[in-house]
Design a protein around this nucleic acid. Structure first.
Lengths: 101, 101
DNA sequence: CGTGTAAGGAATTCTGACACG
DNA sequence: CGTGTAAGGAATTCTGACACG
């Protein structure tokens, strides 16, 4: 089962190129528990191709106005469907009208 | 067709861990035209999973006493079969008796 | 030929913080 | 909340060379 897709070998610089996301964003999504890179002995992050796809997916949802909180809940599938729909709608409205909290 | 396997994303440090080869060896095999990493803007090497497999294969052949020259020829499949067999035999003999040129 | 190593420098990454909205 | 940035330091990588066998 252990494929190449889940082997953590990609540095944050390459990941940034692959996803188009800034390193800052990538590190922030980790802080928000959305990605879980491994580390080298020295402490540099290592990501997998699965993480590449995950980050692209996250980026899409962020663009739709969703918040990291909602994305995390969504992946855990623990949020009741009704509430999730409301949150997604709110996110899209926020995005559409560029609302600031 | 462009799979993950041929995407150049692995740094030499990770490659060294993945293959068990020293960075010195990995760079040397590049010098001998056996692997062809890409480079980042800054000049650091990037390898693919295909390269991981290729290097492991190379390492096996080196252990059998083959020389980089023969390995390269072998991959190009341009060496006559008879001569190749002779070279492989010689390599294995060298390895067996630990002969120094 | 194949590989280790010390050397000096450059590129990459890391963390914690301040800023803004 | 999400993200940019300047800051200082540490880890990583690079090249060319000398060594040895």
């Amino acid at each position: 089962m252990s494929s190449y897709k889940d082997k953590k070998v990609i540095t944050i610089g390459v990941m940034s190129e692959l996803t188009g996301l800034s390193e800052r964003k990538i590190r922030y999504y980790e802080e928000r528990k959305l990605v879980f890179p491994e580390r080298t002995q020295g402490g540099t992050r290592k990501y997998s191709f699965d993480d590449v796809e995950r980050l692209i997916d996250i980026a899409d949802k962020m663009e739709d106005g969703m918040q990291t909180f909602d994305i995390r809940r969504m992946e855990q599938k623990k949020l009741p469907k009704k509430e999730l729909r409301e949150r997604m709608l709110r996110g899209q409205l926020n995005a559409a009208f560029n609302i600031r909290k």
